[in-house]
Amino acid sequence: MAGLGVRIVQRVSSTRAFAKVAPQVVPALDRAVHRLTRGRFLLSAQMLPGVILTSTGARSGRLRRSPLACMPQQDGRGWLLVGSNFGRPGHPAWTHNLLAHPDASISWKGRDIPVTARLLTGEERAEAWAALLEFWPPYATYQSRVTRQIRLFRLTETPFRRV
């Protein structure tokens, strides 16, 4: 039955209606639940692993918090982030932030972890994209709706940094 539930969520998350509503609803719910549970829980992570990314605004320089789905790497020290924007035309703001300021942090399972982000290109991107499509097939639908290439980032845990 769990497989059926996942397939239903994948089908719903691939619809244009979901793409219209989700960007306002999902992050707001995730931020609220994350705050109430002191970083131990993300509502959307019940179907897909997720992090709260804290990045520095590309133009403002202010800290920005974005709840995002992720694909944890097998070594447990890295994560892939997908700038799908739910299949909407523009790149999400957090991708601009990481391009301008790759040092960031994530909240992952109640831990705050300093990370460095790197935009994936070429063969490395192609391999990551194939793995992501196996992990969450709706990403293919999101890509088919837009002319831009969806940005993929690899986050790597970095040693503690003093500010």
Rank of each mutant, 00 (worst) to 15 (best):
L29H: 03
L29M: 15
R31E: 11
V33P: 09
L36F: 13
L36I: 07
T37R: 12
T37Q: 12
L42T: 02
L43C: 10
L43A: 15
G50T: 06
V51N: 04
V51W: 04
L53W: 08
T54Q: 09
T56W: 05
G57E: 09
A58C: 12
S60Q: 08
G61W: 11
L63K: 13
R64A: 06
L68Q: 03
L68R: 01
Q73P: 03
Q73K: 08
Q74A: 15
G76L: 08
R77S: 11
G78F: 09
W79N: 06
V82R: 00
V82K: 00
G83N: 03
S84H: 02
S84Q: 01
F86Y: 15
R88E: 00
R88D: 00
H91R: 07
P92N: 02
A93D: 14
T95F: 12
T95A: 11
L98P: 06
A100M: 14
W108A: 05
W108H: 04
K109C: 13
R111A: 11
I113V: 15
L119H: 08
T121W: 09
G122W: 14
G122F: 15
E123R: 12
R125I: 08
E127V: 12
W129M: 10
W129K: 05
A131W: 07
L132F: 09
L133S: 05
E134H: 15
E134A: 15
E134D: 15
F135R: 06
P137T: 06
T141Y: 06
